[in-house]
Design a protein around this nucleic acid. Structure first.
Length: 474
RNA sequence: GGUCCGGUGGCCGAGUGGUCAGGCAAGGGUCUGCAAAACCCUCUACGGCGGUUCAAUUCCGCCCCGGACCUCCA
């Protein structure tokens, strides 16, 4: 059995994973800023860490997965100013949209979803602690983190303080002691959201919320912190500085996992390029699109850059069609729990090695082939050779293992018939099939073929099998 | 410019110091009244140049190409 190991951004290498509390794994992932519909780049970390959470739940007695909602941010303020909609309305609507979109991509909700606006008190407590310990200072109504007070600053992103200073932009606020110092708290004018604080009415800086919310939900030090690769600097670097300095701990989280960026048709996704795609845009292509996108994402290792293409989305749909066709014809699982468990473990094993979903998917496809061989006919030799096992080829067995593995990946969650045939009224199709059956019994092949051609023209594919004729939408 | 990550067959995409990735597409076959599905076969690649090694796509160096980040709201 492969040791459970993950790539740690902190050490830039793979490490064996052992939770601080073996009975309880604690994960924090940076969630969305709710000012607009989720785009494809937002969806990737949600899918990746959903699979991670599902895997860990299978391996450990208890998992707490926390993903925040950032509902105080200047992007939100700007949006409210230009649209006239209230901040509360924007964040409430966008949060609901986010939940709906993520569910449509097959993601389970996190165990806790704290909101920044409901975590102001712990943020203030944290900032007070940082000031008391000499890691933060007040200047012109702002509270700033003093980078120079934290020797390990830059360790996560792999930058020295000198490099950071050299890279500092020209406009450094004059009240900063050091160009790298960042805002913990800033003053708010009356027209912007604000909370009373020891430093006057104000609002939090970007980074402090995650330190506060992870602390509240998971404690001073926890197991895994995740997010997009672009968050390593400055966001995560600053989180680490805040949390470690506030609590005097050697780490904030033991393991830092970052997913690669998503591109669209070979280009960076941006509004100016006109290739900005929201999750909604994808979902609008059909009932199949959410799951197909999920598969597309999982086909690439999470740390690699992912190039989204519509051709790739269609290919993912075609693969799911075949998965569901197999599931639809597979009989109930035979009573061979030990073999079934072995098959599932074999397919799931790559996930233990830094969440290698592409390899797990390859093995999932091998389980599909195994089931097809068992229930339709063919040779299992190649698959059994790859697996290095001599599993019995019994109808229903590999399909049961397939379902088990697919559940960890959050795939194949739909009812097969529904996926293949849709939800609309299908009486006319059944009638046509009956008419064709009558023609075939009468050996009237011309009429039988005419009926099939007619159905084909309407996007219905017929499949004659030993149990009669079934159909699916093309 | 700095730091980091990549370059695999028509496309996507794992992995490995030497005997199999896989998927999609394409071609051929088995099966089928004809089909579809399924299964089988074919297509045998690892950016360039050096180096280490009995052996490198896999390790090392250099180069080329691509991408990410380089802060407090552009």
């Amino acid at each position: 059995m492969t040791e459970l190991q993950f790539h740690n951004s902190l050490t830039r290498g793979k490490e064996g994973f052992a939770p601080i509390d073996p009975a309880h794994v604690r994960i924090y992932v940076c969630g969305p800023t709710v000012y607009d519909l989720a785009h494809l780049g937002n969806a990737r970390p949600v899918i990746v860490f959903d699979v991670l959470a599902r895997l860990l739940r299978r391996l450990f007695p208890r998992v707490t997965y926390v993903r925040n909602i950032t509902d105080v941010d200047d992007k939100i303020n700007a949006r409210a100013l230009e649209s006239g909609e209230t901040i509360e309305a924007i964040t409430a609507r966008t949060t609901a949209d986010f939940h709906r979109d993520m569910a449509a991509l097959g993601n389970l909700p996190p165990d806790a979803e704290p909101r920044a606006t409901q975590s102001i008190a712990p943020m203030i407590a944290l900032i007070e602690r940082l000031i008391a310990r000499g890691h933060a200072y007040v200047a012109e109504g702002h509270v700033l983190f003093a980078v120079a007070s934290f020797p390990d600053y830059g360790a996560l992103s792999g930058r020295s303080t000198e490099e950071l200073q050299a890279g500092a932009r020209v406009d450094v606020a004059p009240y900063k002691r050091d160009p790298g110092d960042f805002v913990l708290w800033k003053p708010s004018p009356p027209e912007l959201p604000g909370w009373d604080s020891p430093w006057g009415r104000g609002r939090p800086g970007w980074h402090i919320e995650c330190s506060a919310m992870s602390w509240q939900a998971l404690g001073e030090v926890f197991d895994i912190h995740g997010g997009g690769h672009d968050l390593i600097f400055p966001h995560h670097e600053n989180e680490v500085a805040q949390s470690r300095c506030a609590f005097g701990t050697p780490v904030m989280a033991n393991l830092w996992m970052h997913n690669g960026m998503l591109r669209v048709e070979g280009e960076k996704m941006s509004k100016s390029l006109g290739n900005f795609l929201t999750v909604r845009d994808i979902l609008g292509r059909g009932a199949w699109a959410g799951e197909a996108f999920r598969l597309l994402v999982l086909k690439t290792h999470y740390r690699q850059a992912l190039d989204f293409t519509f051709a790739g989305l269609d290919e993912a749909k075609a693969e799911l069609d075949d998965d569901y066709a197999m599931l639809a014809r597979a009989p109930a699982a035979p009573e061979l729990p030990a073999v079934q468990a072995e098959m599932a473990e074999w397919a799931l094993e790559p996930l233990r090695d830094d969440l290698n979903t592409p390899l797990a998917l390859t093995r999932l496809r091998d389980l599909r082939t195994l089931e097809n061989v068992a229930s339709v006919g063919g040779s299992a030799t190649a698959v059994l050779h790859r697996a290095g096992r001599n599993w019995p080829v019994v109808p229903g067995l590999a399909a049961a293992a397939f379902r088990e593995v697919a559940e960890v990946l959050g795939l194949a969650a739909s009812e097969p018939r529904r996926w293949l045939q849709g939800a609309e009224d299908t009486g006319w199709i059944e009638a046509a099939i009956a008419a064709r059956l009558a023609a075939r019994r009468a050996r009237d092949w011309a009429e039988a073929d005419r009926i099939r051609a007619d159905l084909t023209a309407r996007g219905i594919t017929l499949e004659d099998g030993p149990q009669g004729t079934t159909w699916r939408r093309a």
